[in-house]
Amino acid sequence: MSTTRKPWYRRFGTVLVYIALILLGLSMLMPFIWMLSTSLMTELEVYNFPPKFIPDTWRWENFIEAMTLQPFGRYFLNSAIISAVAVTGQLLFCSMAAYAFARVKFIGSDKIFAVYISTMMIPMIVWIIPAFLLVNTFGLMNSYLGLVGPWISNVWGIFLLRQFFLTIPKDLEDAARIDGASELRIFWTIILPLSKPALATLAIFSFMNAWKDFLWPLIVTNQTNMRTVEVGIANFSNVYSTDWPHQMAAAVIVLLPIIIFFVIAQKHFVRGITFSGMKG
């Protein structure tokens, strides 16, 4: 990629791309801005009419109050454990399954894959009760295993990685096989390193989904000390009213780990030199 001396029309194109991206990006930012400004307001300001975006006095203490009105420290710990297990479990188990489907192609693997895909078609609100009954029967209520259960592996992730593994050229693998490499070795030293962008994508989504999950943690826990951040956020509203400033302050803090995780993970979107190097 040469970066010097682009012709004028290409620079012009770059500017257009920037403008388009920034304009659309601003609309993406809007709810976030609202959330941030609400978290710094008094309730009266939230209900100002017409709505305003910049608070008169910035009430930073909303954040401290939001975190201390409920045991948010404990909620963070719980959510962190669940998300960590979810990311690790999905990266490992999904890539293994995806490898079996995309590269091993044993007899019947297509049929098994079809069964896997079909499980995505039953909506959560239907499977959640039987799954809960199982978890309950096995004595896993109020346990981390019960909480993280649905997130240890994920068909969506298997499908994603399978699609990605399919695009990796066969010749690399064949060459390794001629050199006598085992399947396990090919998986670990060729396929996985080449799939960093897809693995990073899966890591982001598995982290996010586990972190933001609400209904399942609520149903499999009875005790405050086993609840998660999303349940904590929901606690700020009830039928009668919503405590917007504190709820949004909590939501902002809860959002930070996902953003940090995203920023770190997206570095891996940029493919290493290995790929093109080996290709030649």
Binding site: C94, A97, I112, W127, L134, P150, S153
Partner: peptide
């Protein structure tokens, strides 16, 4: 050998799937 390897690689996700999705599906 291939099949055996495939099964081993599928095992964790399959156990998980049976517990959390296939059983609830059949039950429904």
């Amino acid at each position: 050998a291939k099949t055996r390897f495939g099964f081993v690689f599928l095992a964790p996700s399959m156990i998980h799937l049976i517990f959390f999705l296939i059983t609830p599906m059949v039950f429904s």
